Structure formats: structure tokens, C-alpha cells
Amino acid sequence: MRYDLVIFDNDGVLVDSEPISNRLLAGYLTELGHPTSYEDSIRDYMGSAMHRIHDVVLERTGQRLPEDFDDVFHARVFAAFERELRPVGGVVDVLEKLAADGVPYCVASSGSHERIRVGHRTTGLDRWFEDGRVFSSQDVGRGKPAPDLFLYAAERMGVVPGRCVVVEDSPLGVQAAVAAGMDVYGFTAMTPPGKLVGANRLFSDMMDLVDLLVSSAE
């Protein structure tokens, strides 16, 4: 394998959370007087840190979201996670293979540390991501599409950016990985391939990722 570190996005890549969170986000924004469909939410906010939602709404409407917006939204999301969240199909097999082969990996997510922990605990993925393998946009000043989070994760894992590959399913995440000088594999299970411009490779089935990583060295 040509890479010294595999960096996973979380939502939509490790846990199948995007349908849940975007459904709830669209509903909550609509409640607050900002009509938003599920498709709108996927297009505008998928892969975003929370601050970007505030920024986009303010820019478009001139209105600020309520101060408790993040807390209310997260409470709704976490409750839904407990009922509905599942790991992305095939991702446990991928993690087992990376661990067996001694390939370093971590997660770098736009979500908060609490959101990552809740999702991993609910799906049983927490055993694959002990302390030191979990990085959040909370750890850096700017979330995706800025490269800061991926650069921070690589630094903490002791790997130079050029030896990292990022697994992403959002346009913002792909942009961030490219800006960080890392290769990026675009996961197209939920995202049209044409939206992941800049990805080195595209794949729609998580079970194909290991073969892609192996073939990258050939």
C-alpha cells in the first residue's frame, strides 16, 4: 500500500448518518422560517461544520439562527441516532482488514466530538477508534473545505500529507483533502460522482475500498 495513513470522514462514510441528520436539519430550518427540503440540505450542508450552516443562513436571509440552534439540533439528531443509526455497509470489514495489516487510520469529521462518540457507540464502531484516532472540526479554527482538519489529523498521527489518503463522500471534504495535498477517494453511495470533482478515485461500495488501496501501490 502506498499510503501511511487512511483518514476517514465520519458521516456517510463510517456511519450511515447523512439521511437522518439532513432530514432533521431540513425540518428544523423549515420550522424556523427557512424553508429547506431534504435535497436542499444534502446539496448545501452535507459535510459541513455547524458554523457553516449559520453562515449560509445569515448570508442568504440576513437573519441569525437562534443561540440554542446547535443544542436543539444535536439533541434531535442524537435521539434519532439511538433509534436508527447503522454503520455503513462493509465498513467493519474494511477496518478489520486495515487493523490486521497494521495500516494506520483515523477519523477526521466536521461533526463535534460528542456527535462522533454518540454515533460510534451506537453502531459499535467505538472499539475501532480509541483516543488519538478521532479528530473533529472542533479541534481547528476552520472546518471543511479548509484543509486545516486533515492537516491537523496527519500531524497528530505523525504522517506527512503526501502519504495520506482521505475517504470522503462530500464535495466540501474532497475540496479540503485536495487543499491539504492529500489523495482522496470519493465514496459515491449517496453523492453523485460528478459532485466529487478532484477525487483521485471514485467507488460506490465500501467493500471495494481495500482493493482500491492495495491497487494504488501497483
Rank of each mutant, 00 (worst) to 15 (best):
H74K: 10
P66E: 14
H54G: 08
K97W: 12
G89W: 11
E39G: 06
Y38H: 04
R83F: 01
S21E: 13
V56S: 13
H74A: 11
E96N: 14
C106W: 00
I42E: 08
E96R: 10
V107E: 03
P104S: 02
H113E: 05
R86K: 14
H113L: 01
E59I: 13
I20R: 00
S112L: 03
E84Q: 05
F69R: 06
A75Y: 09
D55F: 15
E39C: 04
T30N: 04
L32P: 00
H54Q: 06
E39Q: 05
A80C: 13
G89F: 10
R86G: 06
M46E: 11
Y28S: 05
D40G: 03
P66H: 14
G102D: 12
K97F: 14
D40M: 08
F69N: 02
D70L: 05
M46D: 07
D55S: 14
E39D: 11
D71Y: 10
V92S: 12
I53M: 07
P66Q: 13
G62E: 09
D44I: 15
R52K: 11
C106T: 01
T61L: 13
S37F: 08
V77Y: 08
R76V: 10
R60N: 15
E96W: 15
Y45K: 08
R76N: 13
G62D: 05
D44R: 10
L25I: 09
R86Q: 13
D68K: 06
H34Y: 06
S21Q: 12
V91Y: 01
V91N: 00
G102Y: 07
S109Q: 09
H54W: 11
T30G: 02
R83N: 01
R76C: 04
E59L: 14
L58R: 14
E31K: 15
D44P: 01
S21V: 12
L65P: 07
L85P: 00
R83K: 03
L85Q: 00
V57K: 08
Y38S: 02
F78V: 12
R23L: 14
S37R: 11
H54F: 04
R86L: 06
F73E: 01
S112Q: 08
M50G: 07
G89K: 11
D44E: 15
R43C: 12
G89Q: 04
D70E: 12
G33N: 01
H54E: 03
R43S: 15
R76P: 03
H34L: 00
